[in-house]
Design a protein around this nucleic acid. Structure first.
Lengths: 160, 160
DNA sequence: TATTGTTATACTCTATAACTATA
DNA sequence: TATAGTTATAGAGTATAACAATA
């Protein structure tokens, strides 16, 4: 009863296990890489935050929370942190004064660039053993997964 | 300079971005699902810990830390927590009294089963829109990634 | 009243450093 | 001396609840 017969389980169960075993491993590898190596050391969510702000200048806190899939207070705290490190600038929206207008500072954009280069190099090296086709497969699968995980399932409003 | 030309970047760079955007999303979705729904509510590392102990009865703390990719103190604390919740039992190795002999309790195994069922159902539902072939692709890609990320890169001893 | 954010609080994850006990 | 674990400490990520300010 405790020993399962290798591959006789349904595919979605196997896929579930694979996701659960593989993704934390990769996340940790990346996290360590980022924490240690950079001049400033960005966490993954911080990195994503700066990246989002780079391409969505003047985004609000809610925009960010929505994109990262975080609760507002979590996002607020993270932004506090980034502002304390002078990587992000916070202003008030002139028309709707409830809203924040967030931007990456010079320093933030420089750090983001460096972190991105480092990460790209690191992941490039890690993925190197794969053939071009396998790399394509990784990209395809990620998009596939983003498609199914990115929709309703994750919407914060639907959770209780 | 700030706008990048869609798909002209090298594959490994694209793959890097895809990993970074997709994996946190999936992890968060799973984490929420696990936190909320279960009778006890297990975190992902807790779930993996119980799972590992289920198939490696009497494992030591170091075994676990190694498998999960955690530092020993992190692992120690997590086990404390699981023991406090009566999900894990800690004994001393009779021959080498430095070693721990860790096992899942009845209650732990029951909770693990429930959490596993819930997660399987949830992921099964989430992956449902995918064709059988696409699901296979997910499995293949995870194994591929585990292969490249699971080796030297992640060894704790190599990090400073 | 609804929306945007912040503050307070709490818990998990994770790491490093310093320590104890055993081998 | 080397190995297995624990304790102390710290910081990030995350959430919920309660609140303030603006619309």
């Amino acid at each position: 009863m405790k020993q399962l017969e290798a591959e006789t389980r349904p595919t979605h169960e196997i896929a579930a296990r694979e996701l659960l075993e593989t993704m934390p491993l990769i996340m940790r590898t990346i996290r360590r890489q980022m924490r240690g190596h950079e001049p400033g050391g960005l966490s993954i969510p911080q990195f994503r935050t700066l990246g989002f702000l780079m391409f969505n200048e003047g985004a609000s806190l809610s925009d960010l929370a929505e994109h990262l899939g975080l609760a507002l207070p979590s996002m607020s705290k993270m932004i506090d942190n980034l502002i304390a490190r002078k990587l992000v600038r916070r202003q008030q929206h002139t028309e709707d004064r409830r809203r924040l207008v967030l931007n990456v500072t010079e320093r933030g954009s420089e750090l983001l660039r460096q972190a991105g280069d480092m990460l790209t190099a690191f992941l490039g090296g890690t993925l190197e053993p794969l053939s071009a086709e396998e790399k394509e497969q990784v990209v395809r699968t990620m998009r596939l997964l983003r498609g199914v995980f990115g929709n309703g399932t994750n919407s914060r409003t639907s959770c209780r």
